[in-house]
């Protein structure tokens, strides 16, 4: 650790031995009962997206989820009964609201997490402070960190969580359905002309989805050509001038910032845009599209239908 740089080496050994002593005394003080319990030795191990090995002495029974997507996955694996904590933003499925909240997304309350006595915490890499991960790990609470960049990562994540939650059959079934849905979309849009797409996530300034983001990956998979595909950062800013130059066939707007009517209204001022004239502006639901959960295939189908209306003739 960095502060060791400042302490003299001969002091360091002594200090370490001392803290180990204190720590073991503390541990002995804190967990005498837990030691006495008899357990079946069914160890489960998995690796999280930071390549850290997570081992539990038995499949997780008390899980705290720190992201809406992770809550959705746990429920999709019929593990809703294992969930003892969630963030205030976890609103899907409806049953999730019965699980106690541990605070807002991105800044949950550590005290409430500890109080729930979880044997596993699921945390999104982007939406969790690193100190939260190290702090909980230090306190003996294993933290599985998720970092989904594309749809394949989601299947992979479901498999890993299935293992550690002892829901491997459910995981296999979920992945099978997931892959099936993806394949269906892929077959429908095969060999069709790809429209150019602009996906706005923020209105002032105009921030769009770049090729390096999860949503950018979703656009590719749904058979669209992202006008910001080659931007170097995941969510680049674009001027309206660039938008007019690129003149996308379709404009998508995320409903995170503005109400639906305002989104459309803001864009309809730019009559020179093809998408505006042809009425191809669509407001997308952030809860559905921005969460890497199994539900993302619904979002994928929604996008594919917008990109290729003729491939999805009836309202299915």
């Amino acid at each position: 650790m960095w502060f060791r740089l400042f302490s003299k080496p001969e002091l360091q050994g002594g200090a370490d031995r001392f803290s180990v002593l204190i720590l073991s005394a503390l541990v002995a003080l804190l967990f005498p009962v837990a030691e006495a319990e008899t357990r079946e030795p069914v160890r489960v191990c998995t690796v999280d997206h930071l390549s850290r090995e997570i081992c539990l002495s038995r499949p997780a029974g008390r899980v705290v989820s720190l992201a809406p997507s992770l809550t959705e996955i746990v429920f999709a694996l019929s593990g809703g009964n294992l969930l003892v904590g969630r963030t205030a933003r976890c609103n899907h499925p409806l049953e999730a609201s019965h699980v106690p909240a541990v605070g807002p997304y991105m800044s949950p309350d550590p005290e409430r997490i500890i109080d729930l006595k979880p044997d596993l915490v699921l945390a999104p890499k982007d939406g969790t402070k690193k100190r939260m991960v190290t702090r909980l790990t230090d306190l003996g609470i294993p933290v599985f960190v998720e970092d989904c960049r594309n749809l394949d990562d989601i299947s992979d994540l479901i498999q890993r969580l299935g293992r550690i939650l002892d829901r491997e059959r459910e995981a296999a079934r979920t992945i099978e359905q997931f892959d099936q849905q993806r394949k269906l979309v892929r077959e429908r849009i095969q060999a069709r002309k790809k429209p150019s797409v602009l996906f706005a996530v923020g209105s002032s300034p105009l921030v769009v989805v770049g090729g390096k983001s999860f949503l950018g990956c979703l656009i590719r998979e749904a058979g669209g050509i992202n006008v910001a595909e080659n931007e170097r950062i995941p969510f680049p800013k674009l001027s309206i001038e660039e938008v007019i130059t690129k003149d996308p066939d379709i404009i998508l707007v995320l409903d995170k910032e503005l109400p639906k009517e305002r989104c459309i209204e803001t864009w309809s001022r730019h009559r020179s845009l093809k998408a505006v004239r042809e009425g191809r502006i669509h407001v997308m639901n952030a809860d559905l599209l921005a969460r890497p959960s199994p539900r993302i295939v619904d979002g994928l189908r929604q996008l594919a239908r917008i990109f290729h209306p003729s491939a999805f003739p009836r309202d299915e």
């Binding site: 804190l30 837990a34 500890i114």
Partner: peptide, 12 residues
Amino acid sequence: AGRTWMILLEYR
């Protein structure tokens, strides 16, 4: 009790 001590000593 163990959990309370943990919250007091390791968090607050």
